[in-house]
Computed example of a mutant assay.
Amino acid sequence: MLGARLGAYVSLTKPRVIELLLVTTIPAMLLAQRGTVAPLLILTTLVGGWMAAASANTLNCVADADIDAVMKRTASRPLARHAVPTRNALVFGVALGVASFAWLWVTANLLSGLLAVATILFYVFVYTLVLKRRTAQNVVWGGAAGCMPVVIGWSAVTGSVGWPAIAMFGIIFFWTPPHTWALAMRFKDDYERAGVPMLPVIKTPVEVTRRILAYTVGMIIVSLSLLFATGWLYAVVALGAGAWFLTMAVRLHLATRSGAVTNPMRLFHLSNTYLSLLFVGLAVDSVLGLPVLL
């Protein structure tokens, strides 16, 4: 019984989503000082980042409990099946947010703590409560919250926000729509049933894949801007992974235009692999301290 209850609270934090966010934090920290960051600072920043993301996700579950209950993809979430009282989840989410601020302030610096709080507030109040149910641009602007771990990681090391941090923010900003819209194409009926105006709900598949392609190009362009701060290894990974992602996006768009049966989930899964490869390449390049290419 206790194990099931604890599992429900962990599930509120959406741990699988957090994993991908934290993967981007470490490379950002390593790039900030080209691989010379103290391991303890990395660990403490990851703990603070986890608490911030867990807070945002938990509060998102509180706000979205009604629509989660009617979507097959999310019907098993704790609040949708009443496994956790709403009041408890709200207190849990707020407590995590306060703890993340205090932790980052003490172990890193005040800026990192403030950025974490701003991220939580933006995700809950701007994305979840305002944008998500009102506009198809919800994941475009709301996705900015998911870009913040790299900025928090950079600020934890430097105490400031440099242009490479903005570039990494931009990569994830342009990555988020293709990633999310590919998933939404698969679960279009779910979103329509819940009254959430995701792009595939209100636009044709051709228009959706056209926009996926446009954001993919933007993502690759921004990823190449980091060549001014990285070595040849990152360049190889960025070019290779970018070409792979672009090829798959083009194929999805052409197949959709031709009326063929498509599987957008292939692009969704590829997007996760792409982001992981890109940031792992960035981390290794930074640790090796390779000469800046440009």
Rank of each mutant, 00 (worst) to 15 (best):
R81K: 15
R81Q: 12
H82S: 14
V84M: 11
N88W: 14
V94H: 02
S100G: 02
F101M: 08
A102N: 07
W103I: 01
L104E: 05
V106R: 14
V106M: 14
N109T: 04
G113S: 11
G113Q: 10
L115G: 09
L115T: 05
A116L: 10
L121F: 12
Y123S: 01
V124K: 06
Y127F: 11
L129P: 07
V130A: 10
K132C: 07
R133N: 04
T135G: 01
A136E: 15
Q137E: 15
N138H: 05
V140L: 15
W141Y: 14
W141R: 00
G143S: 05
G146M: 06
G146I: 01
C147G: 13
C147V: 00
M148L: 06
V150L: 04
V150A: 05
V151Y: 06
G153D: 09
W154L: 01
S155T: 03
V157W: 10
T158L: 14
S160D: 15
V161A: 06
W163H: 04
W163N: 00
A165S: 12
A165T: 06
A167R: 05
G170R: 13
I171S: 04
I172N: 12
F174L: 10
W175N: 05
W175V: 03
T176Q: 09
T180P: 00
A182W: 07
L183A: 00
D189E: 15
D190V: 03
D190E: 12
A194L: 14
G195Y: 03
G195I: 12
P200K: 12
V201T: 13
V201N: 04
K203N: 11
P205F: 11
R210C: 02
R210N: 13
R210V: 01
A214D: 11
Y215G: 02
V217S: 08
G218S: 07
M219L: 14
V222H: 11
S223K: 07
S223P: 08
S223C: 01
L224R: 07
